[in-house]
């Protein structure tokens, strides 16, 4: 009896020592794992960038030399520049449209009670998980039935529909964290709903709206499946790159890619700064 009682006391330091060793082993294992995952995520992006400066038509190791030739070719490629212009046009319009529809949708979900609200919510956020190919095909058929010609404008409508989900989820999440008392106080003091929205609600969800707008812009700029079905004769940038890829791998695509990575990086920094809530 005495022996069994005293055993834990003797064993305790040994056990502690073992747990320190185990903890160290576990930490090392986790660190290694994180390093491998980071390598998996970022080595491909570095490969994309490095080969855009490589002095060879084929993308093979070892590197053969430094060149800016691929960037020079982009500079002289008028098709590519048109595509970039189209993409800016589509992404800007789609972002504005999707915000104009998405922010009210989030407000309606947050504030109003109406029959079919659950179905409405499910429908609005469906395009996040619904593959773009279904959105693209179904809207293509709509435009055919209505007799619309395909153009960049039909692409804009498609993007705005697909991106609605992004805006609604982001803005809804912010609205839910907003204390109800703010809007109630405003109403009690006699403000109209419109006044309350502009002066109370909007400033509080501003960063979420900006964040959702930036994300929508990036996603629209990058969109393929919906664009694939809805575009007419004009190409957006990803569609242009996609059609170039059909002809094979070239370092020019790496050069465009590197510029896109750079551009994305700038937007990420902008998003982080814009969505950072000012602390009072």
């Amino acid at each position: 009896m005495v022996m069994t009682l005293s055993t834990p006391r003797v064993a305790a330091p040994v056990k502690k020592k073992r747990s320190v060793v185990q903890r160290f082993a576990a930490d090392t294992a986790f660190m290694t794992f994180v390093a491998i995952l980071m390598a998996f995520l970022y080595i491909p992006i570095w490969i994309l960038i490095i080969f855009s400066f490589n002095d060879s038509r084929s993308l093979t190791w070892p590197l053969s030399g430094f060149t800016l030739e691929w960037y020079q070719r982009l500079w002289n490629n008028s098709q590519l520049q048109d595509a970039i212009g189209n993409s800016f046009y589509v992404a800007s319009c789609a972002t504005v449209l999707t915000l104009l529809v998405g922010v009210p949708a989030a407000l309606a979900l947050h504030r109003l009670h109406f029959p079919g609200k659950t179905v409405f919510r499910r429908l609005v956020v469906l395009p996040i998980t619904l593959p773009g190919v279904v959105t693209g095909i179904s809207m293509l058929n709509l435009f055919r039935v209505l007799g619309f010609d395909l153009s960049l404008e039909t692409v804009i409508l498609g993007h705005a529909t697909a991106l609605l989900a992004v805006v609604v989820t982001q803005v809804s999440a912010r609205l839910e964290r907003l204390p109800k008392s703010l809007e109630e106080a405003s109403a009690d003091l006699g403000a109209t709903q419109i006044y309350t929205f502009i002066h109370i609600t909007l400033p509080n969800i501003r960063s979420a709206v900006i964040g959702a707008g930036l994300l929508s812009f990036v996603l629209s700029f990058d969109e393929i499946p919906v664009t694939f079905f809805l575009t007419g004769r004009d190409n957006t940038l990803p569609m242009y790159i996609y059609s170039t890829m059909r002809r094979g791998v070239t370092p020019e695509i790496n050069a465009v890619g590197t510029l896109i990575v750079l551009f994305s990086l700038i937007l990420i920094v902008a998003a982080v700064i814009a969505t950072r809530d000012r602390k009072h």
């Binding site: 491909p44 992006i45 994309l48 393929i224 994305s264 937007l267």
Partner: peptide
Amino acid sequence: WVSYLLRAYVWKT
């Protein structure tokens, strides 16, 4: 945030 198309393309290369 980096183009989905490029991330697929880079694996082809």
